[in-house]
Design a binder for these strands. Sequence first.
DNA 1: TTTATATTTAACTTATTGGTTAATTAACCT
DNA 2: AGGTTAATTAACCAATAAGTTAAATATAAA
Lengths: 124, 124
Amino acid sequence: MHDHLSQTFAALADPTRRAMLAQLSKGEANVSQIAKPFLKSMSLPAITKHLKVLEKASLITKTKEAQWRPCKINAEPLKDMAQWMEQYRMFWEESFDRLGEYLKTVVPKKNKKRKLAKASRSKE
Amino acid sequence: MHDHLSQTFAALADPTRRAMLAQLSKGEANVSQIAKPFLKSMSLPAITKHLKVLEKASLITKTKEAQWRPCKINAEPLKDMAQWMEQYRMFWEESFDRLGEYLKTVVPKKNKKRKLAKASRSKE
DNA sequence: TTTATATTTAACTTATTGGTTAATTAACCT
DNA sequence: AGGTTAATTAACCAATAAGTTAAATATAAA
């Protein structure tokens, strides 16, 4: 499983890892802090592994600080995911006929880098 | 891996399956039609399996029609994904100070079921 | 230099994933 | 009935994932 998107999806396909990410969304934390809520249900090496999966998927960044390893969220890959998802938005938008109106509110009036929707329709 | 969200993410963590979904986003298709682009690189049973993964994740619905099995996309699970992702939007939005303005354009003025952002902050 | 804390690595196990080929089922068409 | 097309199931295999315990490494502190 080589491509970025697959790696992102795979990393998120685990509730433990999503919970870790959720914690990091509230601020930096080192490994043992992240580990705390899970040590009842799994070992520390298991946590190290989960963090490594998140790191390889670039969803977090681990740095060094004395004997600690502070981790920071990096939601960049989620941005790519969001972009990928845009091609399906119309399928889940509540009423199809509101969609036109919706696009008018979301796409910046006078062009301006584009925000959501109507994304470039790249293949995959 | 029991929860819905994990199943959705896992199903999407494969480029073949994402390509199948992309095809179905352009309209219904039966198994052999879906299979065509992949038969150079994998067997039909492999395709059956991929479709089963998508089906179990509720991303597609398979029905019967004579000897064919037409498949239809069902993006409902992607909606849940999108909702989950909302809690991270602020991390990838380009400039944080434009965010406020952005929310004003996206959240319907006089309440009205909410469209994006500020989603219910559910745990996980 | 020993000790304590934080984290990782190694080695192993079990289950799941993604693929294969061969055989089977299902529905239709002569 | 016999053949063709569509799709699935069965049985198998290799690679990966998710966990374990035990040992190792890194930094700080006594």
